[in-house]
């Protein structure tokens, strides 16, 4: 009877609680699983230190190596486009900031909506380019399995539904917004159990890489 409004309230209520709970529990399990495997103490006399080189690598890997860019510009550009589009839309859209403020007790300034809107368009374009790249680049095509396409969909849907909801292109609005929230809930639920985990584990991975190299006196 009141489908779209009930749907919106369900996505803003029960479904949100459940998915946030699964996300947090799953994330913690995954992080514990990783860290519990430990790393043997390195008995070789170090040439350099671990901590700062580790931090340095966390930062430096954000920029691609020039050689890689020359060989695979599309991978790099599409990657940047969609990551920036995604992060700007997620973190600098005022309604989202209000949600974070409610969750964490603090917020930050946002960007005017037209800028966020442009970022979302870039993000969508970047994701489409990334998909095309995955389907045509021989290396990516060979590497990709169903999970890669699943996480693509999980990432694409929030951007798409968010864009459609913001521009009120799906009617009625409660349905549009409900779909947007649902797409994020889907993302949250599957996040800890897919390679979406890289969002967090890349900091660990980069740190290990930088620390192990730093110990040998190499900036990685």
């Amino acid at each position: 009877m009141n489908e779209s409004m009930d749907f919106l309230l369900w996505t803003r209520g029960t479904a949100f609680d459940v998915s946030v709970a699964i996300f947090i529990v799953g994330m913690l399990i995954r992080l514990f699983e990783i860290v519990s495997l430990g790393r043997g103490r390195d008995l070789a006399a170090p040439r350099g230190t671990e901590f700062l080189p580790g931090i340095r690598t966390i930062l430096s890997r954000t920029l691609p190596y020039g050689g890689t860019f020359k060989r695979q510009p599309l991978t790099v550009i599409a990657g940047y486009l969609f990551h920036i589009g995604l992060l700007v839309s997620l973190l600098l859209f005022i309604p989202h900031i209000e949600l974070f403020r409610e969750t964490f007790g603090f917020g930050w300034p946002g960007l005017p909506n037209p800028i966020v809107d442009a970022a979302a368009v870039l993000g969508i374009t970047g994701l489409l380019a990334a998909l095309w790249n995955r389907l045509t680049n021989p290396v990516m095509k060979m590497l990709s399995d169903s999970e890669d396409y699943l996480v693509w969909i999980l990432t694409f849907l929030p951007l798409l539904t968010g864009y459609l909801a913001y521009h009120r292109m799906i009617n009625p609005y409660p349905l549009a917004m409900g779909l947007h929230i649902l797409s994020i809930e889907l993302l949250l639920v599957l996040f800890p159990f897919t390679k979406l985990m890289h969002t967090f584990t890349l900091f660990l991975a980069r740190w290990y890489n930088g620390a192990m190299s730093g110990r040998r006196g190499v900036e990685s």
Binding site: F16, E102, T103
Partner: peptide, 14 residues
């Protein structure tokens, strides 16, 4: 509460 804030008690869930 802004429309984007979920209905439940988010901090409790968290």
């Amino acid at each position: 509460n802004a429309l984007s804030i979920p209905v439940g008690e988010l901090s409790r869930t968290v």
